[in-house]
Design a protein around this nucleic acid. Structure first.
Lengths: 254, 254
DNA sequence: ATTCAATGTGTAAAAAATACGCAAAGATGT
DNA sequence: ACATCTTTGCGTATTTTTTACACATTGAAT
């Protein structure tokens, strides 16, 4: 319905009340000025010890050479979430991941190129699945520890701060942590994840009892390999069971 | 830096990488199509019994005659929050209120006029301050009970649902309820507010003890008037004390 | 066999949430 | 003056949840 390429200069395409004129250069013309719309994505991973985020080194100005969040301009035939997923895939090869809208940043001067409004998302990925792809293609993507993030392009420092804050509060009352772990994980990994995000120490035994009482973990028969000690059992998150319990009024909380 | 009115036809104004051309009709022209950007605002009030929301009757198509959330297009020199506040003031006379970003709605077909992305906000107002203004000016603004909201224009039904959900979860761990009450309020009013939003019944005595233990309420010497029984004491929310406690790690929770 | 962390269960103490009881206050109407 | 009605403020017993830590056992690797 919108954005057809029409090659008559100054043809006015009327769509109810909003319309654009296309001039001889093929530009899109509107009666009132419009901000450009982009999405940016904060991608969190977990390496077993620390929370990491994926950044892209900018190849063009502005901020050429600086690290930035993956993102780009919204197309006319996609909503912002689709845009975030597309950009993510194009820039890092990551797809099919947990993604959720974070906040829309709209400061008038947040982009030196002009008025650009960014709808930001945060995503949780199983870092092992993407470690390789991220590093090898043309775009310079790299995982950084949260404690080791360089100063970022645009207002991306701020976006990152907001995202981490959100992750921190989200993980306490929604079972999103599992998105950061492999399909199978040990109790110790799960606990370490919570400790890394919440920045606290937890008692192993109480943690175990609390999480087991929820009945949302399926113990598998498999165990860790190559440990110098007794191998930990692998568990998997039971999404269906969680949905079921959730519908009955159960609230995940840790 | 952006959006200067320049009267030479087809003059290209280059701002780093983003630019617009102004054609002979005074239109704003861009190399790529852009969605229009609006804000919409869900305004909550509390009349002592029920949660209410403020709606505007649309005077023009599309959805002429339907009720909708107050909102409008974002100007180039204001961020989205400023836009939401401005539109709110223009359409309802309300200013200086609690406002917070809710979510950005970007479905490709959410507006029949074309591609329009809406950054939505929700606001909490002391209903008594605005009851009169809302009804009297040209725009037809009206308070509706949550239980009695008509079908709304655009995707505003959905926005409203999301907003109420947010209010419900927000009020449990942030002291935002006070924004809905007068500067002074009785214990009963505060409790009724929580009961209305959370849709539960609370024990008066436990509620009293819990809220008093937080030490964020200042009891005044004033009391209700014209009650057929013992008048309730007025309290006020101690913002500074809350800030102070909050910095020390105190978490409001009810 | 030794080492070392994981496993799984138990339990006691502390803290928080829940459910009521009750006497007194005080504003209004009769 | 009295009856009515709801707030006020404190008390308290019970249940539930959280927290802290003990302990015996398992099992992979060297």
């Amino acid at each position: 319905m919108f954005g057809w390429k029409i090659n008559f200069p100054n043809l006015c395409v009327r769509i109810t009340q909003s319309y654009f004129v296309m001039n001889e250069k093929g530009n899109y013309c509107y009666e009132y000025p419009r901000p450009a719309l982009t999405t940016d994505c904060v991608i969190f991973g977990f390496d077993g010890v620390e929370i990491k985020i994926l950044l892209i080194e900018r190849g063009t100005d502005p901020f050429k050479g600086k690290w930035a969040l993956p993102g780009g301009f919204v197309n006319m035939d996609e909503d912002t979430e689709a845009c975030a997923r597309r950009e993510l895939f194009e820039e890092t090869g990551i797809k099919d991941l947990f993604i959720e809208q974070l906040y829309t940043f709209s400061d008038v001067n947040r982009d030196p190129r002009g008025r650009v409004v960014s709808v930001s998302y945060y995503a949780l990925v199983k870092i092992a699945d993407y470690e390789i792809q991220a590093g090898d293609d043309a775009s310079k993507a790299k995982w950084f520890s949260m404690s080791d993030v360089p100063s970022l392009a645009f207002d991306h420092d701020r976006i990152l701060r907001v995202a981490f804050q959100r992750l921190k509060s989200k993980i306490r009352y929604q079972p999103v942590g599992f998105e950061l772990l492999n399909e199978q994980f040990t109790m110790r990994e799960l606990q370490s994840l919570y400790e890394a995000i919440l920045e606290v120490q937890l008692d192993r035994r109480n943690f175990y009892k609390k999480i087991m009482k929820m009945e949302i973990l399926i113990p598998t028969q498999e165990k860790e390999a190559n440990t110098p000690h007794r191998a930990g059992r692998y568990y998997r998150f039971d999404r269906e069971k969680y949905q079921e319990l959730s519908n009955k009024g159960f609230n995940f909380e840790l």
